[in-house]
Design a protein around this nucleic acid. Sequence first.
DNA 1: TACCCTGCGTACCGTACGGTACTGTACGGG
DNA 2: CCCGTACAGTACCGTACGGTACGCAGGGTA
Lengths: 230, 230
Amino acid sequence: MFAGTPIVSALAESPNQTYSPRQNAVLECALKVLVEGGERALTTARIAREANCSKESLYKWFGDRDGLLAAVIGFQAAKVRVKDAGQGAGDPDAFRASLVVFARDLLTVLAGDVSLALNRLAIGQASREGSALGRLLLERGRRTIETRARALLESGARAGHISGDLGEAYRVLYALVVRDSHVRLLLGDDLADDERDFATRADAAVDQFFRLHGADGKTGRAGPGPDNNS
Amino acid sequence: MFAGTPIVSALAESPNQTYSPRQNAVLECALKVLVEGGERALTTARIAREANCSKESLYKWFGDRDGLLAAVIGFQAAKVRVKDAGQGAGDPDAFRASLVVFARDLLTVLAGDVSLALNRLAIGQASREGSALGRLLLERGRRTIETRARALLESGARAGHISGDLGEAYRVLYALVVRDSHVRLLLGDDLADDERDFATRADAAVDQFFRLHGADGKTGRAGPGPDNNS
DNA sequence: TACCCTGCGTACCGTACGGTACTGTACGGG
DNA sequence: CCCGTACAGTACCGTACGGTACGCAGGGTA
């Protein structure tokens, strides 16, 4: 996913606390436990046992359980990097293709086990404690996605492919791509077969996006806008 | 019909399980506790204390804690009724107004304390236990909203105001109205000022919906296409 | 009055978890 | 060789919770 691609603007990580390799290994282990068993399984004893470390070390490194959870979220967010996808903005087809790639990536990330587990964790803690984890997740995870998309849209706007407010355009694109799939997945619902086809969904969503925010007349496709509805 | 004898799982069958007034009062109280303090506060002891009943009664009525949670969700869902809003379909303006009302109601419900608390509860339990609560919530809560919207859209389609597949239209409408607000609220994020203006949001979303699914040329408004972007 | 049923209040039990303290051990520098 | 540091492993403690058992009051019935 972020394998060989070059890393772009990794956001000013001033508050980004870094950990030693050993601590990162423990966090990776905690993440695995979280994904496998949910929050209920994420006990300090289990993490310590799974990671072959002592509970005392956990508390020395991360303060308390909440600090550990925050570290897990920050650790995962640090692994996600913004792909450099703002190229080829001059060509309408290339721009459209970039949007489709973004949409497909977005769906893939949101539907992933790790993302779902972390979001469930943050949502479960949102009621108490001022939703610190939720804000952390939004700040670290969502921000990177948004910056990537906005850079893409901005280049498209400069090339005259789309019109309208960029922030509004981003939100519309996000809505058309994700729809209610994220919440339903968080609730444990299964996506329908056609909903699982992220490539087709991304394509259709970008079509609809261009009908709302494409520069006048342009659909982002070679031919006029399709009408595959019965 | 004697109430209180059978201890059913409340999840499997008997979807129309009804409770005595006393039990409903207890469930109402449990709902209040849940909204105020989140799942962590929803302990059997606290419910019993708050509702002036004994823990033993709770277990006799609802089986165990999970049964109680399921009963709370079912109890809340039973309070939500589908408003009969499919009138005036012949008039385009009235049809559009009905959609706007639906959109505003949808946002209001999803942003409500009770809805957020129940969704957080179900999401927190989604990882373990096969996400029974999540399915219950989707089945009871979402279904009613969807039926109302689909009836509305169907009447609009019959009157020739919109085109395209109805299911697709519903999902697009939902996406344009809700966007990512639901997830962000679940995560504890605060909506921006303009996002909190549900009336304006509903209006704009319906505008966009008509541009995607309105019968050719029709925007659902008296005048030409709107320009609500800054 | 005797009996029974319902349900409140509460004491109680087992367990699980967060957090702490203690011990043993490997390592590295002086 | 000694000492400080870091860390694994584990025993331990206080607490909170789910779930159960028991006592007791009120009301209905005969």
